[in-house]
């Protein structure tokens, strides 16, 4: 493979993965509206296309055609920069996510944009950079609701990032690597039984990760930064048209990213839950498609859990949120690290 071919193939991968992610974002929104609708005993969007399937496209067109208002009192450079940071950090994360078994010629990975040995750290780093989008959006809007929303959000993200990071240490200890492919391969032997969540005894870590992930993505029941009843919309109150849509897309892209990371770290990634019972088939392509199917299926289940929780649980109070993060999740995560290290050392 020459350098030019390599560059072109990679460009193609980037385009395809980004388009799929954005489509995934659009249809996660539809899934959420449909599922929450059913939970609340109504239909959800049903007019545009069969079962409302074209609704996301129409929503996108609407957002494009809306007037783009910029209030007079905002601090312009940062006001314009904030949605870009937010969406940029959310979209780049997908670059290090492997979503299928390794295929293709040597040195080239068909189902991952770039296979790097600090993949997990890149994900964490980009998540922590995403805070700036929200913090700066609220501050530069020059609006009390926005500022309160972004202060809440920054405090929440900083607090839960610790618990999130610490909950992943157990998994990294077991795999001995930050490479996401290595972490998945280490869970591949016996299907469901060797997943980190079950066979690895990392269910405590999975619980912490789940809670912290809800808080990190500003989702219900931890969606205080944009609590409508108190803050009219939080940090994006002053944003309209595509700038608002960028924050919206960033939130759902982050949900998908978090789901991908949970799948890779705790649910065995693209490996089948039945292990070798439904064996590797003769055709490499069927195996590849099956691996992608399992990956997408697990991410979908994770997203559905998100929506289910949003539809059924009420919002926490802010002090409850902080207490839960610092006094419960953090110590639990540290205990999990100690326990996992002891187990690995004495085994």
């Amino acid at each position: 493979m020459t350098l030019l071919e390599f560059a072109l193939w990679n460009l193609l991968k980037v385009v395809v993965v980004t388009v799929i992610l954005l489509l995934g974002v659009a249809y996660t929104v539809l899934l959420e509206r449909k599922a929450v609708g059913r939970i609340q005993n109504r239909w959800g969007p049903s007019r545009v296309g069969p079962f409302g399937l074209l609704q996301p496209l129409v929503d996108g067109a609407k957002n494009f055609l809306k007037e783009d208002l910029i209030p007079a009192a905002v601090y312009r450079p940062i006001y314009l920069l904030a949605p870009i940071i937010s969406l940029g950090c959310a979209l780049v994360v997908i670059a290090v996510i492997p979503f299928g078994a390794n295929m293709g010629p040597k040195g080239f990975d068909l189902f991952e944009v770039s296979n790097i040995n600090i993949g997990l750290l890149v994900v964490l780093g980009l998540t922590s950079m995403g805070v700036y989008g929200i913090a700066l959006a609220g501050w530069s809007s020059n609006n009390k609701y926005s500022l309160l929303g972004s202060l809440r959000s920054s405090a929440q993200l900083i607090s839960y990032e610790l618990a999130l990071g610490l909950s992943l240490v157990g998994v990294v200890l077991r795999a001995g690597s930050f490479n996401l492919r290595t972490i998945v391969d280490q869970q591949a032997q016996h299907g469901l039984l060797s997943w980190n969540m079950f066979g690895g005894f990392q269910f405590v870590a999975f619980f912490i990760y789940l809670m912290a992930a809800y808080a990190e993505t500003n989702r219900s029941p931890f969606d205080l930064p944009e609590a409508e009843s108190e803050l009219t919309g939080g940090y994006h109150t002053e944003y309209s048209s595509m700038k608002f849509a960028m924050f919206f897309m960033a939130e759902y892209a982050n949900m998908i990213n978090v789901g991908c990371v949970a799948t890779l770290l705790f649910l065995g990634g693209w490996t089948s839950p039945f292990g070798h019972l439904i064996g590797p088939f003769h055709s490499a392509w069927i195996n590849a498609l099956l691996s992608i199917f399992w990956f997408v299926f697990k991410v979908f289940m994770f997203l559905f859990l998100y929506i289910w929780v949003r539809g059924t649980l009420p919002r926490f109070r802010y002090d409850q949120l902080m207490n839960f993060g610092w006094r419960f999740l953090m110590p639990l995560a540290i205990l999990n690290i100690v326990g996992t290290s002891l187990w690995l050392a004495l085994r």
Partner: peptide, 26 residues
């Protein structure tokens, strides 16, 4: 030094600088 680079991003630009920005905002 990949690990150091990632740690630099996570610790300095992700945590400490967010705290700075937070204080300025507050």
């Amino acid at each position: 030094a990949e690990f150091l680079a990632a740690a630099q991003i996570i610790v300095y630009s992700g945590a400490i600088m967010v705290l700075f920005v937070f204080v300025v905002m507050l």
